[in-house]
Design a protein around this nucleic acid. Sequence first.
DNA 1: TTCTGATTCAACCATATTGTTGAATGTAGC
DNA 2: GCTACATTCAACAATATGGTTGAATCAGAA
Lengths: 121, 121
Amino acid sequence: MVESELAQLNDVFHALGDTTRRRMLRELSEGEKTVGELAAPFEMSLAAASKHIKVLEKAGLIRREARWRSRVCYLEPGPLASAQQWLKQYEHFWTERLDILERLLREEDASKTPNREGDDP
Amino acid sequence: MVESELAQLNDVFHALGDTTRRRMLRELSEGEKTVGELAAPFEMSLAAASKHIKVLEKAGLIRREARWRSRVCYLEPGPLASAQQWLKQYEHFWTERLDILERLLREEDASKTPNREGDDP
DNA sequence: TTCTGATTCAACCATATTGTTGAATGTAGC
DNA sequence: GCTACATTCAACAATATGGTTGAATCAGAA
């Protein structure tokens, strides 16, 4: 279980580590698209685009569904949420930073006023 | 600029797409560590661990600093924030889902009332 | 059934990644 | 200077990745 979740996270981040695939996700965020439509903007063969799509699918980021005479892809946001969840562990590293910055600015500001330190109500 | 930012995002996601490197980041989130300390938990040569550290460094996720007779690594949270920023674009897909679910439940509830269809102004 | 269009498969190539080992480097202390 | 320690470099091998091309598949229209 845990093993496969780690593997899934590997797949998700790996899938996101490529500009082509991130652009594909962006396209899909605007709505469903066939493989052909998804491949069109890229200067590569359809087969190559199909491989990228397969990587996204393996990561669970998209699904393919047979519809009419082509296959429609659509976004599956769950794994993106997992990735964000993982990053959230580290969120305090930058929010804390902003807090420190803010506190420093307040202290600097306080030092310009004639008031003593620690006078803030 | 944009080019290099995209490349950076590639590097960041690529770096995150490996369990060893994510564990290293986790270790560093608890404080600075030398290369040796960072490598110790893993069943691989020091040279291999050093390569992983280099990947993290290339992505800007950590920095190495010469200190005393060894090198100390510490977390650089900026790129993690960028990754989270990127994922934030898609956040509405899962928050919206909850909204949709809520709306469906409300509609279902409304359909139980004696009002006709299409009555909504 | 046959034709057509959309997509995938198979084989192949170039390059990148991840690991190994042994040598090389750099720094602190004797 | 020499020694010891920590880390990296160099060379190598195995495997993964990302691309190509041409054949194969598969569903719907004629």
